[in-house]
Structure formats: structure tokens, C-alpha cells
Simulated assay, not measured.
Amino acid sequence: MIDNQTSAPSVTVTLESGPAGAGSIDDFELFYSRRAVDRFRTLLGREGLLDLLAADIEAGNAFLRESALTSGGRFKAGTTVLATKGLTSAEFLAWMDKAFAGDEQPLLAAHPEHYAMGTDEIGARVVENIGPHVASFYMGGWGTDALDWAKDAAELLPESEFPRKMSSNLFLTDGTVIGRALIQFGDTTGGFTASLTVYFPVACPDEVLDHHLRHYAVEFRNWIVAAAA
């Protein structure tokens, strides 16, 4: 398993010349990484990928279920805040509504650890990493009307500044609530601010929460860029 932590290398390497066009070595690596991930997703197909991850999903869901049961309904929260210029929140959310209603490819492309996103007989299903754990869960109560828990959340921002809000429980097929999400958008001059809060059971290690805050930053940045394009 790849280490869950990231750190800067002790050696610095600078690209002086060679490739045509702009971009750093990190940019090149990101491009090739995305291309490789897309190739494997395409070759395996949705069901092939889920079959390949079946054991990981079983283990990940078991970890989250145990964390939820141990926590007794108590959650800890973290928030990622993104500032966008050149796009309004209404334009972005319109793109998101269209993306979730259509093919899952634009949703999967936003993060290397997105494995499936779609709707089945239970509801809106997501298969992705939660920290180091691959999990398959559902989002329930997603919409503009906050769930009861969200109405009293300490992270709830003033409606006058963040009028567009979405909240959801994250739950397993047996109904166990393994997390929550509270997403809030407020327009600014020339753009918008996104406040992205996730909640995990208090028994989960802090690194699980921290890595999902990074996950939020990656996926929403890429969704916003795709919406603008």
C-alpha cells in the first residue's frame, strides 16, 4: 500500500530544456497518470473494476461500519474551502446536475480514486477511497433542503452569504451511516466560494478525515475546471 502521507523530496530536480510547450515535470506526471488510470478504467469496464476491488470494498466497508458502531453516532468534521474565479456557483451546479444525471465518466475523471458513481435500486452510489480504505456507499437526503442534523451543524454558514446548500448522509447498504457531507456555495465578485465539509465517525483516525479534505480539493477543483470548459 502506498504511504498515506505526502512529503517533499529532499532532492530538487529542475527541467532546463527538452520538451516542447509549457509545463513542469509534475504536470507531465499528472497527465500520464490520468491517461493510465483512464486506460485501465476503460479496459476493465465498470463491473470489471468493481469485481477487481470486491475484497478491498468488503474490508473498507467493514472498517467504516465498525468505526460508526464504536462511535455511537458521534462524528468529527473537517472543511476544505475553495475560491473560484471566472464561474458562478449557479453555472457550476447546473453542470454538476447534468453530470450526475448522465454518463459517469466526467465524475470519475475528477479523481484517480473514483471507481464508480451512479444510481441503482438503492440510490446514488459512490465507490471511492475514504482515506486508505476503498468503500462503496450511498448518498441520501441530497438536495437543497438541509437534513435535520445539518440545520444544527456548527459548520452551517449564513444563508445570506452561502444560499446554495446541499447535505447528505453517507450510508452502507445495511443502513449504517458512516459519514455525512455538507456542501455550501456563495457567490463572490467574479466567482464563488465553496465550503466543503465532511464528517466521519470519531473513532476514525484523523488521517482518514485529512485525506478526504485533500480528496475534496482534487475532485472539486477538477469538476469546476470541467464545468468552465
Rank of each mutant, 00 (worst) to 15 (best):
G18E: 01
G18C: 00
P19D: 01
P19N: 02
G21V: 04
G23D: 02
G23H: 04
S24P: 03
S24Y: 04
I25Y: 11
I25M: 14
I25H: 10
I25R: 05
D26E: 15
D26A: 14
D26Y: 12
D26M: 08
D27M: 07
D27H: 12
F28L: 14
E29M: 15
E29P: 07
E29D: 12
F31R: 15
F31P: 03
Y32E: 12
S33A: 14
R35A: 15
R35F: 05
A36S: 08
A36G: 00
A36R: 05
V37T: 13
V37D: 12
V37A: 09
D38M: 06
D38Q: 09
D38T: 06
R39C: 10
R39G: 08
F40H: 06
R41T: 04
R41Q: 12
R41K: 03
T42W: 07
T42L: 13
L43G: 07
L43F: 04
L44K: 07
G45Q: 01
G45C: 09
R46I: 09
E47N: 08
G48M: 09
G48L: 04
G48T: 08
L49I: 01
L49A: 10
L50E: 07
D51G: 05
D51L: 03
L52V: 01
L53E: 08
L53P: 02
A54T: 10
A54H: 02
A54V: 03
